[in-house]
Amino acid sequence: MTHDVGLHARPSVKLTKLAKGYASEIEIAAAPEGPWIDAKSIVKVMALKAKRDTIMHVRARGADACSAVTALLALIEHDFDDDHANAVAG
């Protein structure tokens, strides 16, 4: 994650909104061993307080799991860019 301030308020809302657009269960973690948290829970995502340069981990289970993981990783990689987020979230 290269966003200047990390997973703070505004990026957290964007990530959660994007995750809510998918039917799959989606979880994120700031370390491979977890803890894994529900990407659709704004409170939990914000409480993660992941900082810049954290390697974010995303996993999903469900019919649209692949596209969900791809979209979330793209959002994180692109610094939670407005246009990109809107394009993916529709």
């Binding site: 308020a9 809302v13 959660t16 909104k17 809510k20 659709k40 704004i42 409170v43 914000m46």
Partner: peptide, 11 residues
């Protein structure tokens, strides 16, 4: 308000 609105946004 921000948390509630985010949850509301998702339906």
């Amino acid at each position: 308000a921000v948390m509630a609105a985010t949850e509301a946004w998702g339906g």
